[in-house]
């Protein structure tokens, strides 16, 4: 075990098996504060499962996930969020029946208990913060629109905005540019470059140009295990990576 207090997230010997199939198998990696880690790998490598494990959606069979001294494998999903971990799903997941404003308001980190939600007041501070975030995610003039009418790319941005308003110290994004047009993709890269600065980020992505653009370090997964790790140049030169992932 590596003793180093600089890590914001330490994943060690993480294993999860579904009916004997090990989707993640003895995986370890460490994330530093302000690092942008990209996880790449072929389909079925277990990338999304790793994010599921960190955010509590899936329970680990063995191993530990230490986030700033808290053991996430034993915490409930909402407690993990309050500890400072935010997660964006692969398919855009927003509240279609609510307005953009209300979508962001629900993620605003206040009034998350039953009583808190009943007595929540929409004050100037909340408004200002929501407007601020909406500007950042290019939806400043769409606050009153229902989320259902947004384009695919706008929904992705809205969900990123919903994470952003929580101000998590660790943000996890699952294929944030998948299904976007070229123009949207460029804007998203810009957006991500801006918001990943003050926090640790884990991104799953297939677009290698995009990966090169944002990654501090890259972890390559294959069959639930870590195949390679290091800078973009390092993993691209790794013959094992070329063979299973980049080669074809």
């Amino acid at each position: 075990m590596q003793e180093n207090h600089n890590f914001i997230l330490a994943v060690e010997d993480l294993t999860v098996s579904f009916d004997g199939f090990k989707a993640v198998d003895g995986l370890s990696f460490y994330i530093e504060p302000n690092e942008c880690r990209v996880i790449i790998g072929p389909n079925g490598a277990g990338k999304t499962t790793v994010l599921d494990l960190i955010c509590g959606r899936t329970r680990a069979t063995a191993g530990s996930i230490d986030f700033k001294g808290s053991e996430l494998t034993r915490m409930r999903e909402d407690q993990i969020v309050h500890a400072g971990v935010g997660r964006k799903f692969q398919t855009p997941s927003v509240y279609e029946d609510l307005s953009v404003f209300e979508n962001l308001e629900i993620s605003y980190p206040r009034g998350h208990t039953v009583l808190g939600a009943l007595t929540f007041r929409r004050d100037a501070e909340v408004e200002a913060r929501i407007r601020d975030i909406a500007e950042t995610i290019f939806l400043g003039d769409m606050l009153q629109e229902r989320a259902a009418i947004l384009s695919h790319g706008q929904k992705q941005w809205l969900e990123i905005g919903m994470l952003l308003i929580q101000d998590p110290q660790l943000m996890m994004l699952d294929e944030p540019v998948a299904g976007m047009s070229v123009a949207e993709r460029k804007k998203t890269a810009e957006l991500l470059n801006r918001i990943i600065r003050d926090r640790a980020v884990i991104v799953i992505e297939h677009d290698m140009g995009f990966v090169a653009d944002i990654a501090t370090r890259v972890t390559v997964m294959h069959q639930g295990k870590r195949l390679s790790e290091g800078s973009m140049a390092h993993v691209q030169a790794d013959p094992k990576v070329v063979e299973v992932y980049l080669g074809h």
């Binding site: 409930r76 999903e77 909402d78 969020v81 997660r87 997941s93 509240y95 029946d97 208990t113």
Partner: peptide
């Protein structure tokens, strides 16, 4: 919101 996307609510910090 829970009716629309329960997981999103859960992972926005609600029990």
């Amino acid at each position: 919101a829970m009716r629309d996307a329960e997981d999103r609510v859960r992972f926005s910090g609600y029990d």
